[in-house]
């Protein structure tokens, strides 16, 4: 028998009366947290949450891997991703030709991650941060070049990385993000300009 019904009643008032049962109980709990609070507030932007890989943040294109199949643009529920025709030099066929590549409009994107999941060659990936600022709406429509760069994680430059860990007593506890793990991120940023995904993998593999 999977689920069963359990009849319940509102708890009765305590015979000791309102003052003892209710008020004292509430005050005791309040006092407990007055002396031993669990502060989980993030002092953003002095601190920022170091999100784990797998977070659906901003999306980056690896142009070399893209086979121009348009799946990402087709599945996009917000019509944020559009295919753009550009002239490229095809290395295999050794000639200049027009190919379609996706570009993204962050005004519309809802970060559902469908495009990343549907891409048959894994040419799109998420970076685990999402707090970027654009000066105007026009900047949020990325060009093909910008779409291939990992955007600068601005809060990471000055803020202190924080992570929340689970705790049986306090729920979430705010702790500092360990340094050695952070180094994995460093080479990523320094390699924004490198376009060859092959070298990217090798470099990262070396660090981690």
């Amino acid at each position: 028998m999977p689920a069963k019904v359990a009849l319940k009643r509102n708890p009765k008032k305590n015979p000791l009366g309102r003052v003892f049962s209710g008020n004292i109980g509430a005050l005791a709990v309040g006092l407990k947290y007055f002396f031993d609070p669990n502060r989980i507030t993030l002092l953003y932007p002095h601190e920022y949450i170091k999100l784990r890989q797998g977070y659906r943040g901003y999306i980056i294109l690896i142009q070399e891997k893209c086979i121009s199949c348009s799946s990402c643009a087709r599945i996009c529920p917000a019509r944020a991703m559009k295919m753009l025709s550009v002239k490229v030099f095809d290395k295999r066929l050794k000639k200049e030709m027009v190919k379609k590549f996706p570009v993204i409009n962050y005004n519309r994107c809802i970060f559902c991650g469908y495009c990343v999941d549907v891409c048959p060659t894994e040419a799109l990936y998420h970076v685990p941060y999402h707090d970027l600022v654009y000066m105007n709406m026009q900047d949020m429509i990325l060009s093909l070049e910008d779409f291939q760069k990992e955007p600068e994680d601005v809060t990471a430059k000055e803020g202190l990385p924080i992570k929340y860990i689970f705790d049986e007593k306090k729920g979430l506890v705010k702790v500092k993000y360990e340094e050695e793990k952070k180094e994995v991120v460093q080479p990523q940023q320094s390699q924004q300009q490198k376009e060859n995904p092959q070298s990217k993998q090798v470099d990262k593999g070396g660090v981690s």
Binding site: S71, V118, G205
Partner: peptide
């Protein structure tokens, strides 16, 4: 694939 998250189930292009 180290730039992509782990345990992700890819969607078929058919879904689109």
């Amino acid at each position: 694939i180290d730039y992509a998250g782990k345990y992700r189930v890819k969607l078929m292009p058919l879904f689109a």
